[in-house]
């Protein structure tokens, strides 16, 4: 732990230096509706803590979690299907990759049109952004299993199911965690974008409302909160990963 802290020191110093620069620059500019200072943002965050934490954060988090859950189920299922069947891999892989060329943000307003201002239009945005990295990363993980290991197990009398459970799954586990660490911030971004486009609550929606009121600090406050939550979530997953994955990388 001590070592990690020391490693982070340069980053922390730079971070605070940049914050100072921002603070000074914004103070000099003196136009809080365009560029608020960090202290103004923190102050606003404190003032708005009640609606932000009680109403809008839970709304965004439920979109994020539902989106992430669906992406996980969908992504894992696709990865396993592609791994098991080469035919499915040939059929699905190009489509999965192509789905990423769709500019999700640009067509997201359509989702609002189709699914309304409720939660599902936002969930769809989050899913579209996150299922791809999960599918591809977990698929790569399953494929990283070495043929020789599978052959050895086969000479022990293993079935395809044995090979999958005893080799493929352990091989894919580190990849799975990498995928989750990527997917969590992305699903939060997806949820926020969805809310920006049209919602009744949520941090993205709140940020946009503050924009129309020319409240610069109010625009930033929910974004700061979102970032903090994303960082916390990733850190939490890293802790779980450390406990579950005792092995990573080279054979």
């Amino acid at each position: 732990m001590k070592k990690a802290n020391r490693g982070n020191l340069p980053a922390l110093v730079l971070f605070f230096a940049l914050l100072m620069l921002w603070q000074l620059g914004a103070m000099k500019m003196n136009a809080a509706y365009i560029l608020p200072t960090p202290t103004q943002i923190l102050q606003r965050l404190w003032e708005l803590r009640e609606p932000l934490l009680m109403t809008h954060l839970p709304a965004t988090m439920s979109v994020t979690l539902i989106g992430l859950g669906i992406s996980l189920v969908l992504g894992l299922a696709l990865a396993v299907i592609m791994d098991v069947s080469p035919l499915c891999q040939k059929a699905l892989y190009p489509i999965v990759v192509a789905s990423q060329t769709i500019p999700t943000t640009a067509i997201a307003p359509l989702f609002v049109l189709w699914f309304g201002y409720g939660i599902w239009s936002k969930v769809l945005v989050a899913v579209l952004i996150t299922f791809f990295p999960i599918t591809i990363t977990v698929y790569d993980g399953l494929q990283s299993a070495r043929v020789e290991m599978a052959e050895l197990l086969t000479t022990f009398g293993a079935t395809r199911r044995d090979v999958f459970l005893k080799i493929k799954v352990p091989c894919a586990l580190p990849y799975f965690f990498s995928a989750i660490k990527m997917a969590v911030p992305m699903s939060i971004i997806g949820a926020a974008i969805g809310e920006w486009l049209g919602a009744q609550s949520g941090l993205g929606y709140f940020s946009r409302r503050m924009m129309t009121q020319l409240d610069g600090a109010g625009v930033f406050a929910p974004i700061v909160l979102l970032s903090a939550v994303a960082m916390l979530a990733v850190a939490l997953i890293a802790v779980i990963e450390k406990r579950v994955v005792k092995w990573r990388g080279e054979f």
Binding site: E148, L152, T155, L173, K246, W247
Partner: peptide
């Protein structure tokens, strides 16, 4: 019983 050139011990 078959033992290949690499030990192929599963690292996990």
């Amino acid at each position: 019983g078959y033992m290949p050139q690499k030990d192929l011990l599963f690292p996990w």
